[in-house]
Amino acid sequence: MRYIEQEKVVRRMNGRMIVNRIFQGLFMFATALALLALVILLYRIVSQGAGHLSLDFLINFASRFPAEAGIKAALVGSIWLMAVVAPTSMILGVGSAVYLEEYAKKGRITSFIQMNIANLAGVPSVVFGLLGLTIFVRTLALGNSVLAAGFTMSLLILPVIIVAAQEAIRSVPGELRDASYAMGATRWQTIVRIILPAAIAGILTGSILALSRAIGETAPLIVIGIPVIIQFLPAGVMDTFTALPMQIYDWSSRPQAEFQTVAAAGIIVLMVVLLFMNSVAVFIRNKFDKSY
């Protein structure tokens, strides 16, 4: 006897198709709504700020007069910040991930650490700012320097990088490790020659996305006392600086309407930087991604 009766199937087919289409529509609507919000935002920012964008805007320092206000100090400051954050967070993050995945014995302590890393990723950035203020600015007496801010931001994105790197390392098939060990390779040789090269795409993609979060963060910088208006560029990591989101925040909180235009231009610059970083991530993913 057959359990599935052809007639009943046919009779119910219409209903199934309708439900199918309703949900397809709902999901499309949700996507469209998100896209619409994004388009409106972009349109507002670009239409408002494009007029103020010019080479002068990029090479001028901040000013009391909206027409002369430029973003040089903040742009260069953000680049300095990244120069500290990128190596610090990636070395620590990839190192921790390699330790957790390849060396640590799977046990209670490891899973406890693991759980806490995941939780750290959800801690508000202000809290990291307070941590940085206590440890780097005060205890280690780094002041409100590029270094102090860079270390603080590194801590902030460290959990994200660790988790991304762990996932990338875990997705390297075990057979490759086996093949390497079976030829007499040490653990270190296996990590450097097999595992990291196979995981590099995932590690870099995750890291760049984390870095682009760091470049847009304001709260920790405010907490550790990074100034907004600076008329010089940092000459080294011990100098103070300002960063793009700080500058934008400052402009947008000023009473004069003209500064809103300046802020919008600043946002465009920040968005271009972010887009650039994300496309580097996409490029790396496409270029190095291997299918096993």
């Binding site: 490759l176 079976a182 030829m183 390779a185 196979a198 291997k290």
Partner: peptide
Amino acid sequence: GMVFQKPNPFPKSIYDNIAYGPRIH
């Protein structure tokens, strides 16, 4: 030496696969 059930070459060139063992040594 060991050969496994499922072929498991490294995601490298044929040359680098074969040279892997000598290189690590």
